[in-house]
Write a protein that binds this DNA or RNA. Structure first.
Length: 555
RNA sequence: GUUCCCGUAGCUCAGCUGGAAGAGCAACCCCCUCCUAAGGGGUAGGUCGUAGGUUCAAAUCCUAUCGGGAACGCCA
């Protein structure tokens, strides 16, 4: 709406020879604000109050003033406040101009989730999965084409460790199940840290695996793990993957990668390892080289990532490749991106690390269970659900399906409302709280509106009227939908959508309290209200879908 | 040691392409003969870590500094 308002004011600013100063922005004090008056006053050496009042009087004399504005006023010392006309607001929402989902040409390749084969999903796997899925949904909603890959961690040392355990336990392939994997991986991982021989043995097995051995074990491990990962991802609604590839699927591109790196003379030997120097002259910080092949001849984390870029760029030619991974991996991605650019394998694709903080315990340290272990996702879900049920007697009678939707809303909303690269403290009580800025609050608001809509089926279009300030505030909040969706995409932060849907629900709850639709006798007024509520409900649904939250039947 | 992230109300945080300090929780006070009160309204609470600088204007940009967290060649 800033666009159309700005356009409407262009003739006036142009006539005053001030077109460069036409900058309209959002404001707390008005619907919109122009605050370039100070700038004009300084540049042109005029009194800000005089020029401000002149601009305002010109705007008030516009022939089509009421198409856009209810009121435009100058406020000392130098602010021009703009208020939409009812006509403008209603035109805007009547045509759903707050939704921009027109098809865009850019293609985004999303790499998110990244669960490890052979490790149970724990609390640390939550954020990369839901932040990635949410961004995927937001991009799709806005009309971008996305291709997403779960990018399993299935090629590194952990595979060697698990296979080593299997060999030692003399396990039959058919006896490998998820319980066994959940037991053997932590055991071997711990042993590698303590025992150098075990560590060497696992590395040897990893090397052999990367060169063709143990595929039958690997396939079984993968099959068992993926089934478990899918079970949890399905529960969480993390279902937007086009590709279920893993690091090991990049294996076939490694020879080509090596060839390119050799050709460009980027690959150098160092201490028996093969590395690429990625330090640049203008670097202020230390920039260690990127490890491609270890001195034990195993491929590294960076190697499969680079091979994957080669494949992705050739196959999909994306404009962007986004990696949802926590902030601790920033250096890794920086190194990989540099090698990709230096070697030319990234082509015209722009790579970005979507970085976020970790989930910590209430002590600010990485989250642990009471027993000291890592909290598994299954445990997190179960505990959240139990606490929610215990909040209110009636919750015990809720359907399992609704309970699962609410549990999801608690976890997703607590997580996705977080912003920026900051860790947050996981407080199970805060997660499951039902009042305040939480998933259940939003779902409850949505259900109230749904009830009214269902009870009052209506057809037609909204009129040019607005009936009171609360009504007006609700319609304006509705108008802002695309602003937040766009912001979420620009900043790659679903939290903007989370913030928006909360504000919208808050606004609609105020409306609900002040206007009792069932008691309105004027049918025209009632119809307008219900038409607006229909649009509000639709936007809440769109927003929640972007946050991977579903609305239950009843609360 | 170097680099990155963070420091805003008692607590958890939003606001950071400069323009008139915001939510939630906790506290206190109101509001159900009325579409679900898991709600709504209100009061109180802030020298935006600190010190400089740039600017008509700084929570926002720059420089220092203090405090917390993280990463830093053969894990992923």
């Amino acid at each position: 709406m800033i666009k159309s308002i700005t356009k409407s004011l262009e003739p006036i600013f142009s006539d005053l020879d001030l077109l460069d100063y036409l900058k309209v922005s959002y404001s707390d004090k008005a619907d919109l604000q122009i605050n370039s008056v100070f700038q004009i006053a300084k540049d042109k050496g005029v009194n800000p109050i005089e020029i401000g009042e002149k601009i305002v009087s010109e705007i008030n004399n516009m022939s089509n003033f009421s198409d856009y504005f209810k009121c435009v006023e100058f406020v000392k010392p130098g602010f021009i406040n703009l208020f939409y006309s009812d006509k403008f607001i209603n035109n805007y929402i009547r045509d759903n101009k707050y939704i921009d989902n027109s098809s865009k040409s850019e293609v985004y390749f999303l790499d998110y989730g990244g669960p490890n084969i052979a490790k149970p999903l724990h609390i640390g796997h939550l954020r990369p999965a839901i932040i990635g899925e949410s961004l995927n949904r937001i991009l799709k909603f806005k009309g971008y084409k996305t291709i997403s890959d779960v990018h399993l961690g299935d090629y590194g040392l952990q595979i060697g460790q698990v296979i080593c355990g299997i060999l030692r336990d003399k396990k039959n392939i058919e006896d490998i199940d998820i319980e066994y994997l959940n037991y053997i991986y932590p055991k071997m991982s711990a042993e590698c840290k303590e025992n150098k021989e075990t560590y060497e043995e696992c590395k040897k097995i990893t090397y052999d695996f990367q060169h063709g051995k143990y595929k039958e074990f690997y396939n079984k491990i993968r099959e068992v793990s993926i089934a478990d990962i899918k079970r949890l991802y399905d529960y969480l609604g993390v279902i937007g993957f086009d590709l279920w590839l893993g690091e090991s699927d990049s294996e076939e591109y490694i020879p080509k990668l090596m060839e390119i790196l050799e050709d460009k003379k980027l690959l150098v030997s160092d201490d028996g390892a093969r590395i690429v120097h990625v330090k640049r002259e203008d670097d202020k910080k230390e920039m260690p080289p990127c490890m491609i092949i270890s001195s034990d001849n195993t491929y590294m984390y960076a190697t499969s990532d680079l091979a994957a870029i080669l494949d992705r760029v050739n196959t999909y030619k994306p404009n962007y490749i986004l990696y949802a991974a926590d902030a601790r991996q920033a250096l890794h991605f920086e190194q990989v991106f540099r090698v990709a650019q230096m070697s030319g394998i990234s082509g015209n694709s722009k790579m970005e690390h979507i970085s976020f903080g970790t989930i910590n315990g209430s002590d600010g340290k990485p989250f642990k269970t009471r027993a000291g272990g890592t909290l598994k996702l299954d445990e997190l879900i179960l505990e959240t659900k139990e606490i929610f049920v215990s909040k209110r007697e009636e919750n015990k009678n809720m359907s399992e399906e609704d309970l699962n939707k609410i549990t999801n809303s608690i976890i997703k909303y607590a997580d996705l409302q977080n912003n920026r690269e900051k860790s947050y403290n996981f407080d199970i009580n805060k997660f499951s709280d039902v009042s305040g800025k939480t998933g259940p609050y939003i779902l409850y608001s949505a259900l109230r509106i749904k009830r009214i809509i269902d009870a009052n089926p209506v057809n037609g279009t909204i009129s040019d009227n607005i009936y009171n300030e609360i009504d007006r505030a609700l319609r304006i909040k509705l108008m802002e939908f695309d602003k937040y969706v766009s912001k979420a995409i620009e900043e790659r932060l679903p939290s903007y959508v989370a913030e928006y849907v909360y504000d919208l629900c808050n606004q609609v709850n105020s409306f609900y309290e002040s206007v009792n639709i069932s008691k309105i006798e004027d049918e025209d007024v009632k119809k307008d209200y219900i038409l607006v509520l229909n649009k509000v409900y639709e936007v809440i649904k769109y927003s929640l879908d972007m946050l991977i939250i579903e609305i239950p039947i009843q609360m």
